[in-house]
Design a protein around this nucleic acid. Structure first.
Length: 112
DNA sequence: TACAAGCAATAGT
DNA sequence: ACTATTGCTTGTA
């Protein structure tokens, strides 16, 4: 029944979760944008919150990339098979990456 | 309660 | 390429 996945998430983690869920399918956003939405000026804190993954896989954390339009990381790994899977997930949603970089900048979600 | 260490980043030099 | 900055979580005393 109750999978009790949420553990003792803090307010910060809840905000990150909410902001991440706001990302439309087929688009991506950056840690900085998420921080902008929840009012956090430290993208590292967001990466850490997502790394802990308070509620997986309900949260499309794979739609969060770096401001440099690079893939960033996934599940705590900044490189490796998991990151490759992240790319694959994004590709399945129509987001194309070339050379570990977002091909179309128009697919960036500005948080509007 | 207090202090120290670490993190899926970003900006500036 | 390298260093500094930054906010938040976790662990230890």
């Amino acid at each position: 029944m109750c999978p009790m996945i949420e553990r003792d998430i803090t307010s910060f983690e809840a905000r990150v979760y909410e902001a991440t869920c706001l990302i439309p399918r087929g688009m991506v956003t950056t840690y900085a944008t998420i921080g902008r939405i929840i009012g956090c000026r430290s993208p590292r804190a967001i990466g850490q919150a997502l790394r802990r993954n308070p509620n997986m896989p309900e949260v499309p954390c794979h739609r969060v990339i770096s401001s440099d339009l690079t893939l960033g990381g996934y599940s705590g790994e900044r490189a490796g098979p998991l990151l490759e899977q992240k790319r694959r997930l994004l590709k399945a949603e129509g987001v194309v990456f070339v050379d570990d970089r977002l091909a179309k900048e128009s697919q960036l979600w500005s948080g509007l």
